[in-house]
Design a protein around this nucleic acid. Structure first.
Lengths: 233, 233
DNA sequence: TGTACATCAGTGAACGCGCGTTCACTGATGTAC
DNA sequence: TGTACATCAGTGAACGCGCGTTCACTGATGTAC
């Protein structure tokens, strides 16, 4: 590493800024993120932060990128902890990892998948490719199952009407899945289910009255159902 | 109606406040909702609003209640537009109505189902019973199908382990579904799927690159799959 | 029907707060000869 | 090794802004006799 001392100190400061920003987001949500508050907690004055980020939006963008990557890292790690040919196990592992990540940092989850922050638009040329990483993990597991001759994808294939194909075309193009578009469809619909269950849970809609401890049995049941439908088990 | 003129004018003013608040939420999101901005647009001064709402949070609570009720109204209307014994049709109708409502007012959808607003906590004794209305619509359709002997609920019944039952107990108690808990499970998991697909769509995650027009074919396909799995068709 | 009074809607000024960002600057850290 | 200079991190004051909420008040609308 050809990093000077100054560069290392600088990198550490950037990390500290982002770390404190993450804490604030976890406590109050991304909309309330304030440069002045971060500086205060770091024992600095707020103009000093402009040495590290050109604006508040730049900081938010960096945090979004980190969040996407952190999620994708977790998904990949969970996948790789399962045997390569245990397709059902891998599917379950990444689904659980997805939920675990969201439960551990609900506000960061909201940052990337929730309401866009008012007055802030994430630059798509940055978030686009990074968001694709997580998608690729889901797609990859389905692909591996199909390639190895496991699973039953006939329902999905039957559902692939031309209009559906047309809607999914951007994804199909993006991932180069022209010869197996049904996997794109499956990955998106499964993601929809997973995202919905996780969102409802972390935002408290699965607790009708009090904030009862939710152990995720419903979630695990649904993931099992999902594997069963694809006849992966 | 025993309402005086003054009461009617007052009610109209309250409606106007809420209407403008809804517009502002639609434009900038709920977190940016400001009493001063509302007053400005109404040609009033901001202290005047305190004649109608005791605080900003009170206004937000009223808007949340309205949003829940508006959604439930739409769901019920969509359901009632289908024949009573057309269970698959009713299920599809309420699912489409759910998506339509969210597409028409994504920020209001976010208001009730998205990240909680920082520093604001909706009083559960108010939102609880109202949120249940929409849930009841879903549950009711499943119940009607089962009662009439249509559909196949064996998968759901098989999935009802004691631990799952334990997790769902608050809902089962709330809706008095002790003798058919599998319907509660189905309603929640279906809601999860619907909510997930709708959330991803309205927050732009189903458009990988540009903001391509999304016609909802994927959504309709999934709803059809759902009815097929329950053998309602 | 007319007057006296109570109720209510809305005003204008103010309190105290926090925010993002710019700017001229100080002082420390690193670099070139 | 020592000096002269350039680079960089951080400061403190300021600009201009918006916010929720309180308070004493004016003036209009409604009510009781």
């Amino acid at each position: 590493m050809t990093s000077t001392r100054r560069e290392r100190v600088r990198a550490a400061t950037i990390d500290e800024i982002k770390e404190i920003a993450r804490q604030h987001i976890a406590e109050k949500g991304a909309a309330a993120l304030s440069l002045r508050a971060i500086a205060r907690e770091m024992g600095m004055t707020s103009p000093a932060l402009y040495r590290y980020f050109a604006s508040r939006d730049d900081l938010v963008t960096a945090l979004i990128v980190d969040a996407y990557n952190s999620l994708a890292d977790d998904l990949e790690a969970a996948r790789d902890a399962c045997e390569v040919d245990d397709h059902a196990g891998r599917l379950a592992a990444i689904a659980y990892a997805y939920r675990d990540w969201a439960l551990a940092s609900p506000q960061e989850y909201a940052l990337i998948f929730g309401v866009p922050i008012p007055e802030y638009e994430a630059p798509p040329e940055i978030t686009g490719p990074i968001a694709a990483r997580s998608m690729m993990v889901f797609l990859g597991v389905l692909d591996a199952a199909q390639s190895s001759g496991r699973g039953d994808f006939s329902d999905a294939q039957a559902a692939m009407t031309p209009t559906l194909q047309a809607q999914l075309q951007p994804w199909i193009d993006k991932f180069q899945y022209h010869d197996k578009p049904e996997l794109v469809y499956l990955a998106l619909s499964n993601w929809g289910l997973i995202h919905g269950l996780v969102s409802l849970e972390i935002f408290g809609h699965f607790d009708p009255d009090t904030s009862r401890e939710n152990s995720g049995v419903l979630y695990r049941t649904e993931i099992a159902m999902l594997a069963k439908r694809l006849k992966l088990v």
